[in-house]
Amino acid sequence: MDFANTPSFFRSGPKPGTRLLLCALASIALLVGDSRYGLMEQARDGMSLVLYPLQRAVNLPLGMVRHVSDYFTVQADLKSENDQLRTRQLEMSARLARLETLERELNELRSLNAIKASRNDAAQLAETLYTGRDPFSYKIIIDKGADAHLQPGQPVVDGHGLLGQITRVQPLTAEVSLIIDKNQMVPVMIARTGERAILYGYGGGVEIRYLPLHADVRENDMVVTSGIDGLYQEGTPVARVSKVERNAGAAFSRITTEPLAGVQQTRFVLVLQEKGQTPPRPAEPVVPVKKTKGKKPADSE
């Protein structure tokens, strides 16, 4: 028998219609078997494991593109949000600074109003406009002058203590020389002991001079006006003792003080009335000249 000339089954095979019918029957059988008895469950699991690396490889470029896009999107959103927060922080910082300034000014006004209410004289509230032009003198210009009946010599205070005195009056403004000016002197006393002294300004600060070594002065002692002149009322706070140096070789103690008033930072001030006129100093008694017998006083040339 010649097998070479015999047509093979796989070469010829069934007709296309038969193949279609067999495939349809096999598909139906697999569908019914899978739905009823779960015949293809294990096959699907195995195929999913086999095809998972291929699926990951196919989806990897798309996933990378998506991740890169999300990264840049998130970075742009974060930068925009960061810029907005920075801008808002600057605005809030400026607003907070304004609120702190307003709060400080409100506290100053409350202190000055309390001082004004406690006095019987016509104290006047004024605002600091600017400082003096001379950098070697410590002066400020206030917004009250001759129009408010101010006069040279009137003391000026803030909510903490003595600030200075008016030294020049103009029609709408007045010049105030601060107590730290080198030309200013204030009669003071130590509030704890009543020891009287003179407070001198030295251009940027104040100090007490010419107190003897045995004077009872300590650190943190309050220095107030003594009221022995015709300008300052007694008891106005002026400074606080910060350092006391006693050198045995010196004739006087060296006492450093710190002014209580905001001499270089206050905005609102209170102009007080001068102390009432004090009676003039009594004249020195005239010592009579004794006459000598037999001698005449020499003629004065």
Results as ranks from 00 to 15, higher is better:
V244G: 11
V244M: 09
V244H: 10
V244W: 08
E245P: 01
E245T: 14
E245C: 05
R246G: 10
N247M: 10
N247P: 00
N247Q: 13
A248V: 09
G249L: 15
G249W: 07
G249A: 14
G249Q: 13
G249Y: 08
G249H: 11
G249R: 13
G249E: 14
G249V: 13
A250E: 15
A250F: 14
A250L: 15
A251I: 13
A251M: 13
A251E: 12
F252N: 04
F252Q: 03
F252G: 00
F252K: 00
S253G: 15
S253N: 11
S253Q: 14
S253Y: 09
R254I: 07
R254Q: 14
R254H: 09
I255A: 04
I255H: 02
I255K: 05
I255S: 06
I255G: 03
I255L: 10
T256W: 02
T256G: 00
T256H: 10
T256R: 04
T257Y: 01
T257I: 06
E258A: 11
E258Y: 04
E258H: 05
E258S: 10
E258D: 14
E258R: 12
E258G: 02
P259G: 02
P259Y: 01
P259A: 11
L260M: 12
L260Q: 09
L260N: 07
L260R: 08
L260C: 10
A261S: 12
A261T: 01
A261W: 01
A261G: 02
A261E: 03
G262L: 04
G262C: 06
G262N: 09
G262V: 04
V263T: 12
V263R: 00
V263H: 05
V263Y: 12
V263L: 15
V263S: 07
Q264F: 04
Q264P: 00
Q265A: 09
Q265V: 00
Q265H: 13
Q265W: 03
Q265M: 05
Q265F: 05
T266N: 01
T266P: 00
T266A: 06
T266F: 01
T266G: 08
R267S: 11
R267F: 02
R267N: 09
F268N: 10
F268I: 02
F268D: 03
V269C: 08
V269M: 06
L270P: 05
L270K: 07
L270S: 04
V271C: 09
V271G: 10
L272F: 08
L272P: 08
L272E: 15
L272M: 14
L272H: 05
L272Q: 12
L272A: 10
L272T: 10
Q273P: 00
Q273F: 00
Q273Y: 00
Q273H: 02
E274H: 04
E274Y: 01
K275L: 14
K275G: 09
K275N: 12
K275I: 04
K275M: 13
K275A: 15
G276K: 08
G276P: 06
G276V: 12
G276W: 03
G276H: 08
G276R: 10
G276D: 15
G276L: 08
Q277P: 06
Q277D: 08
Q277A: 12
Q277R: 10
T278L: 15
T278P: 11
T278M: 15
T278W: 09
T278A: 15
P279F: 02
P279Y: 03
P279C: 04
P279M: 05
P279G: 05
P279N: 03
P279H: 02
P279K: 01
